[in-house]
Design a protein around this nucleic acid. Structure first.
Length: 201
DNA sequence: TGTTTGATTGACT
DNA sequence: GTCAATCAAACAA
C-alpha cells in the first residue's frame, strides 16, 4: 500500500497535487505512528513559478532539496515558527513540489491531540500547512527524507473523491508572486472541514 | 556583517 | 477585524 518511489517521478505537478488528495500521509516518531488523509494541496511549478523557492533556477542550500529526484520531503521553517511540508516530485533537476496544506486525522488521533493541545474534533487541529505538519510531528529533521522510508511515507487507501468534489482556487499567501499568485493551483476537497479557509466553493 | 521578509497561526479588540 | 511572534534564508554591501 505504500506508494513506490516511481509514483513521485510524474512530471505533471498539477496532476500530482490533485492525485495526492485522498492519499494517507504517515509519520513514525519514536514508534508513535500518526496518519492523516491529505485533503488540501498546492502545486509549486519549479523554475517558472514566481511563488516557488526554485523560481528562475535558484539553487541554494535550502532549495537543493527540490532539485532531487521526486519521492523525498521538503520541509522548511516559515515565519520563524511554522514547519511546512512538501512532497518533491518529478525528476532530478526539475524542482517541482506539492505543499500539503491540510490533512484529516485518521490514525493516532490521541497523539495529534497532545501535539496540538486540542481535540481532533476541532478542524484547527490539522487545517493549514503549519498545523498539519505540527499534528503529524513534522519538523526540519524531516527535510530531504525518503518518502518510502520508515519515518515518513504515503499510502493509497483507495480513498477516491469524485472530480466534482475536488476543486481548485488561487494559492494562499503568495501575493509576492505577482501574476503567478492568481493561478488556480490550490486543490482541496470541497466542504471538508479540515481544509483551511476557504474550504468550499 | 547587516537588513529584509516570509508557501502562518493564534491571541486579542 | 487587527497584529505580534520569531528566525533562517536570501541578498546587499
Amino acid at each position: 500500500m505504500k506508494l513506490p518511489l516511481s509514483y513521485y517521478s510524474n512530471q505533471d505537478v498539477l496532476f500530482m497535487a490533485q492525485d495526492l488528495l485522498g492519499k494517507v500521509l504517515f509519520t513514525n516518531i519514536d514508534g508513535e505512528i500518526t496518519a492523516g488523509i491529505i485533503v488540501e494541496t498546492e502545486a509549486y511549478h519549479g523554475v517558472s513559478d514566481k511563488a516557488s523557492h526554485a523560481y528562475g533556477g535558484r539553487r541554494t542550500d535550502r532549495t537543493e532539496t527540490l532539485y532531487n529526484q521526486g519521492g523525498i520531503s521538503y520541509v522548511y521553517l516559515c515565519y520563524g515558527i511554522h514547519h511546512l511540508f512538501n512532497v518533491v516530485t518529478s525528476v532530478e533537476d526539475d524542482p517541482h513540489a506539492v505543499l500539503v496544506r491540510a490533512v484529516e486525522p485518521l490514525i493516532g488521533k490521541e497523539i495529534m491531540e497532545m501535539r496540538r493541545n486540542m481535540p481532533a474534533s476541532k478542524a484547527a487541529i490539522s487545517a493549514g500547512p503549519g498545523s498539519a505538519a505540527k499534528a503529524l510531528g513534522i519538523d526540519r529533521s524531516f527535510n530531504k527524507k525518503d518518502l518510502n522510508g520508515s519515518d515518513i511515507w504515503i499510502e493509497d487507501h483507495g480513498i477516491h473523491y469524485s472530480s466534482d468534489t475536488i476543486v481548485a482556487g488561487p494559492r494562499i499567501g503568495v501575493a509576492y508572486a505577482q501574476e503567478d499568485a492568481l493561478l488556480p493551483w490550490r486543490f482541496f476537497v470541497n466542504g471538508n472541514k479540515y481544509v483551511s479557509k476557504p474550504n468550499k466553493i
